[in-house]
Design a protein around this nucleic acid. Structure first.
Lengths: 167, 167
DNA sequence: CAAATAAGTCAACATGACTGACATAACCTC
DNA sequence: GAGGTTATGTCAGTCATGTTGACTTATTTG
């Protein structure tokens, strides 16, 4: 029992390690499946965000992922060439290449998401369902502004709607 | 209000994204400092775990990091050459090269840890101190066995003792 | 002494980041 | 309509960090 609401350094260090191991295993499930397709985590991120935001522009995706367009180009090209992602000209601005997952891409994304969702659900089942709200508030608070607001809006939307799965 | 204690898929997907963004920003603070030293995240991980477990054997470190010894060799050699980590022969078994942070290495580790701890503390301050226990339980539950037990023991120890900072 | 173990090393390779420079098409503004 | 801006794509080279496979050395253990 510490007197203050403040964390001891040791407690915070524990969280550092928890985050490291939790994230490593969180991504591990999907990594294994991706390997079968010859894809990596970079492909997964692209699939995920395109699937979640159909019609996403390349520039927006770059902003979300915080990588350079040269880095994105390689994985995006592969995903397009192999038919997981499709591009369509923007209706208003024909310079834009709006990104969409194809049926094939949506299927893979769904498979990957399901793995991650399962681990999260299993974790909450074990830690107690009441830990969900707290965890979400903490994770959101960990995100640096100005992304926090954007993420809040992103997940805020999906919280309400029906299961708007990408496929 | 969902009728069950079960998460909706949309809620779990929200957690997927929260984890992605939270982890990205969590590591970002330290990455910036590491760059000044010409180090990367790999060096940070080595420093962290050696600092937390003085006298760690190479084989144990490999097991924690789940990388090959050839991968470790490169970063470890740099850290040793530049005086951040020291090796000492095992007392009982002279084949072992027990790893320790030097004063220099401890200082850097402390600096990096402080950055991460600050973000975590700021996050809890914002999400409410009552979210701490819940978050820690969730993160622990996210870790796959058999690591979960090991991590539990690791942080369990440090939870109690006085601030056993590595330097 | 032989075998197993702890660690180190050499070489080659893959992935996914990066910088910098430049190309193309479409839009916008004067 | 010319000229600048924007969205995107691409070429070329580099770096960090991971991989496999093969082999060495020192030491402990059976």
């Amino acid at each position: 029992m510490r007197s203050k609401a403040e964390l001891g350094r040791a407690d915070a260090v524990a969280c550092v390690e928890l985050l490291f191991f939790a994230y490593r295993d969180f991504t591990g499930d999907a990594d294994a499946v991706l390997e079968e397709y010859g894809f990596g985590r970079a492909h997964h991120r692209v699939l995920h965000f395109v699937s979640r935001n159909p019609g996403l522009r390349v520039a927006q995706l770059l902003d979300i992922l915080k990588i350079t367009k040269q880095s994105l180009a390689r994985v995006l090209k592969q995903l397009i060439d192999e038919g997981f992602i499709a591009q369509r000209e923007g209706a208003a601005d024909r310079r834009e290449r709006r990104l969409y997952v194809t049926a094939k891409g949506g299927k893979l994304t769904h498979k990957l998401t399901t793995l991650q969702v399962r681990r999260i659900e299993a974790a909450f089942a074990q830690s107690g369902p009441e830990t969900e709200t707290a965890t979400r508030r903490f994770l959101l608070a960990m995100i640096a502004e100005p992304d926090r607001a954007r993420v809040e809006a992103l997940i805020g939307l999906s919280d309400r709607g029906a299961t708007k799965d990408p496929i």
